Simulated scan of single mutants.
Amino acid sequence: MAYDKKQATEEFGRWSESYDRSVLQWLLFGPSHRSLIRRIDAVAGDRPITILDVGCGTGVFASRIRTALPQARVFGVDLVSDMLTRGAHRWRALAEAVHPVQGDSERLPFASGAFDFVTCANSFHHYPNQEQAASEMHRVLKPGGRLLLIDGYRDAPWGWFIYDVCVTYREGNVHHASAKRFREILDRAGFQAVAQKVHRGPAPFLLNEAIAAEPTPLYPAPHFHLRSPASVEHAAEV
């Protein structure tokens, strides 16, 4: 049976109660968030920026962005109201700079060209229509803006076992895209300079970085370039 938004809403509604205490906060989410923040900082420096975090959950990442990058104005969007509600204390504490919105990744409730960065950390495999979600991420980026999308790396045996076997068994028919499939999705959505980087560890993940199409990018192209699954293996980073 195909994974759908009703399943996702029910699953994350149940998970919202323990989400902030999950072992994944240490095992996967923390390392993913640090990787994203390093890339945003390396690209944007101390310039004022606007960031949209798609699949923002309870606001853990939004809070970390504001701590590390105080010049950033952050918007978060999540399909599941229970996740946003569980993060109410964070939204209140960061009310002047972080703005949560309930919405669908396939129909983002923001104007075209609104953001310098779009981030998406470890939720893309839950999106039933991944190509439509990627197109929406492209739409809301400024020309030359940057997408930073992280999901589980399933192209090596350990990652395949974790994500295609264990996670699928627990969460249903979710889909962790291969590195090749990510490139196809982002190319079709209109992104340029697609780059990928593997981060090793107990829960390996793949960072996809891409620039919203325009003749002259607003920021320089990513410094890492992997164009095939085989080359992804050789560029792995612990």
Score class of each variant (00 low, 15 high):
127 Y>F: 15
234 H>L: 09
216 T>S: 05
121 A>V: 04
136 E>D: 10
152 G>W: 01
61 F>C: 08
89 H>I: 04
109 P>Y: 15
23 V>Q: 14
9 T>Q: 14
42 A>N: 07
17 E>V: 15
71 Q>C: 02
70 P>A: 05
101 V>S: 10
46 D>V: 09
168 T>F: 07
105 S>G: 14
86 R>A: 14
11 E>Y: 14
4 D>L: 13
37 I>Q: 13
51 I>C: 10
169 Y>P: 02
24 L>W: 01
43 V>H: 05
176 H>F: 10
115 F>R: 04
47 R>C: 06
221 A>I: 02
84 L>A: 14
64 R>W: 00
214 E>Y: 09
2 A>H: 06
63 S>N: 13
192 Q>A: 03
56 C>F: 08
222 P>K: 03
205 F>H: 03
47 R>K: 11
227 R>C: 11
93 A>E: 10
181 R>V: 08
35 S>R: 07
32 S>A: 10
90 R>I: 15
15 W>Q: 13
28 L>K: 07
97 A>K: 08
149 L>Y: 00
143 P>C: 13
117 F>Q: 02
11 E>F: 11
184 E>Y: 14
188 R>P: 01
84 L>Q: 10
38 R>E: 07
183 R>K: 11
10 E>Q: 15
184 E>S: 15
84 L>R: 15
89 H>R: 12
24 L>G: 09
89 H>P: 03
54 V>K: 08
219 Y>R: 05
